[in-house]
Computed example of a mutant assay.
Amino acid sequence: MFVDRRDAGLRLGERLRGLPGAEDAVVLGLPRGGVPVAFQVARALGAPLDVIVVRKLGVPYQPELGFGAIGEGGVRVLNPDVLRLANVTRDEMAEVERRERAELERRAQRFRGDRAPVDLAGRTVIVVDDGIATGGTARAACQVARAHGASRVVLAVPVGAPETIASLRRDADEVVCLDTPDHFYAIGAWYDDFSQTRDEDVIECLRQAADWSAG
């Protein structure tokens, strides 16, 4: 359906032009693959671009099961139901968070360098990824954006699994997805070119966006 992430971003940006609050929006790309898509969305809307770096907090004996997520600035969101059912202790929680916090800060520094994160307080925040399968990272990103003070959270993706997109409407104020194919099995199947996005590609997108914002 999409030539590459640039094509997906151009189409997504076109769809989002009439979005309420878009004139004061901040576009956040999920690294790495979501950033080239978000870059085109930000250009279409004339909005600032940033990354949203989140890390899932996994149950120690079952890491794929998340009991919460963390974001920059000390933000932490927890799922009390998972914590209760998995019987995660405070010490276990602290150790998982310590490890994931270190990785989050390393990645944020790598992508953004010396630039400060864009302030989200009171803004419409558009969280962008290149596609959604299970939705765990996108859900965490929406929760973290809201915890940073976003007045409205919009999740925008080119393609996603129908049932996952439906479930994410509980975490975002609005979900924009260009296509929800019935037989969804892998994000990359909906791109002609789904080559890996490198750290350097993310850094360059953010550098160019910072230049146009400054200008």
Rank of each mutant, 00 (worst) to 15 (best):
M1H: 00
F2A: 08
D4V: 01
R5E: 06
R6C: 02
D7P: 02
A8H: 01
L10F: 08
R15G: 03
G18V: 09
E23F: 09
E23L: 14
V26P: 05
V27M: 06
L28T: 08
G29F: 06
G29W: 02
L30Y: 04
R32D: 09
G33I: 10
G33T: 05
P36C: 05
P36S: 02
V37S: 00
V37F: 01
A38V: 11
Q40I: 00
V41E: 06
A42C: 04
R43C: 02
R43P: 00
A44G: 09
A44L: 05
A47D: 00
L49V: 07
D50Y: 08
I52Q: 09
V53T: 12
R55D: 03
R55W: 10
L57P: 09
L57E: 05
P60W: 13
Y61G: 04
Y61F: 15
Q62M: 13
P63K: 06
G66K: 00
G68W: 06
A69C: 14
G71K: 05
G73I: 02
G73E: 12
G74W: 03
V75I: 15
V77M: 01
L78N: 04
D81Q: 14
L85M: 15
V88E: 07
T89P: 08
R90N: 12
E92G: 10
E92H: 05
E92T: 11
A94V: 06
A94M: 11
E95R: 15
E95L: 14
V96D: 09
V96T: 03
E100W: 00
A102Y: 03
E103P: 04
L104R: 08
E105P: 06
R107M: 04
R107C: 00
Q109L: 13
Q109K: 14
Q109V: 03
R110H: 13
R110W: 03
R110A: 10
R112W: 02
R112D: 10
G113C: 12
D114I: 11
D114V: 10
A116H: 08
D119Y: 03
D119V: 12
D119A: 14
A121V: 13
I126A: 12
V127Y: 14
V127N: 14
D130F: 06
I132E: 01
A133T: 04
T134W: 06
G136L: 06
G136Q: 14
T137H: 14
T137M: 13
R139Y: 02
C142A: 15
C142L: 13
V144K: 12
A145N: 05
A145M: 08
A147N: 01
G149K: 07
G149H: 06
A150G: 09
S151E: 06
S151G: 15
R152C: 12
V154T: 08
L155W: 11
L155T: 12
A156Q: 03
V159P: 04
G160I: 00
E163S: 11
E163I: 08
T164P: 00
T164M: 07
A166W: 13
L168C: 14
D171L: 03
A172F: 13
V175T: 11
C177R: 01
T180K: 12
P181V: 01
P181E: 04
H183L: 08
H183T: 07
Y185H: 15
Y185L: 05
I187D: 07
G188V: 09
W190T: 05
Y191V: 04
F194G: 10
T197N: 12
D201Q: 15
D201N: 11
D201T: 14
L206F: 10
L206Y: 05
R207A: 13
Q208H: 02
W212F: 15
A214I: 05
G215W: 11
